[in-house]
Computed example of a mutant assay.
Amino acid sequence: MRKIKFIVIHCTAGPLKQTTKAIQAYWRGLGWKTDGYHRLIGEDKTEQLVSFENPSNGVKGFNSKIINICYKGGDSKGTDTRTDFQKDELLDSINKALKWCAKHHTPEELAAIRILGHRDFSRDLNHDGKISKNEWEKTCPCFDAEIEYEWIVGTEALKHIGESIKK
């Protein structure tokens, strides 16, 4: 069973109404055999493209240790275009990913999972231990996922998951 270290949030940097088939066709054009995201959140529905048990192609070099969640929208300028539906579904998707992780990880491993944006995997060009805005190779997901979801990680994740499983 794979051990997850990160839940990574993405945007497609395309229109909200783009079709999943068009996105998948783009990946196939790149020669990918697996989709780029585990979950893809559109205008009014969320699709599970890849099972959490298997890697998807979200962040080169890290895919074996991450769950990738994406919303349709955003752009190359870093504009956050998430709708209320997408914000709710991002939270629901993170919850589903953490519930899956809770079944396959120790409490310590679960507490160590970080939620990041794709941009946070850019190279640390000045070697200061953090990825600054001037180092981003892309703006994806067009908001600071680590800050927005910091309340879900660490020991808070354990509390959150415990409450969710009991319901």
Results as ranks from 00 to 15, higher is better:
Asn126Met: 05
Ile113Gly: 00
Thr46Trp: 07
Gln18Asp: 04
Trp151Phe: 15
Ala102Glu: 08
Thr20Glu: 13
Asn126Glu: 04
Ile113Gln: 05
Leu49Asp: 02
Lys133Asn: 14
Pro141Gly: 07
Pro141Thr: 12
Gly154Ile: 08
Lys133Val: 11
Gln86Ile: 10
Gln18Thr: 02
His160Trp: 13
Leu158Ser: 09
Gln18Arg: 02
His118Ala: 08
Val59Glu: 14
Phe121Tyr: 03
Thr106Ser: 12
Tyr26Gly: 00
Ile161Thr: 05
Thr79Phe: 05
Arg39Pro: 04
Leu90Pro: 09
Gly29Val: 00
Cys140Gly: 03
Arg28Asn: 04
Phe52Trp: 12
Lys103Ala: 11
Asp120Leu: 02
Tyr37Thr: 15
Gly36Asp: 05
Gln86Asn: 08
Lys65Ser: 08
Asp75Lys: 00
Ser93Thr: 10
Ile41Met: 05
Lys130Glu: 13
Trp32Ser: 06
Val8Asp: 10
His104Thr: 07
Arg28Pro: 05
Gly61Met: 05
Gln24Gly: 11
Lys45Met: 09
Thr83Ser: 15
Tyr149Val: 11
Leu40Cys: 15
Pro55Cys: 02
Glu150Phe: 15
Thr106Pro: 09
Val153Glu: 06
Tyr71Val: 06
Ile94Lys: 01
Glu89Gly: 10
Leu110Gly: 06
Gly74Arg: 05
Thr19Met: 10
Ala13Tyr: 02
Asp120Gly: 01
Leu158Phe: 14
Ser51Pro: 09
Asp92Pro: 04
Asn126Leu: 09
Ile161Trp: 00
Gly78His: 11
Ser56Lys: 01
Lys103Gln: 12
Ala111Glu: 13
Ile152Pro: 01
Lys21Tyr: 06
His104Phe: 07
Arg39Met: 14
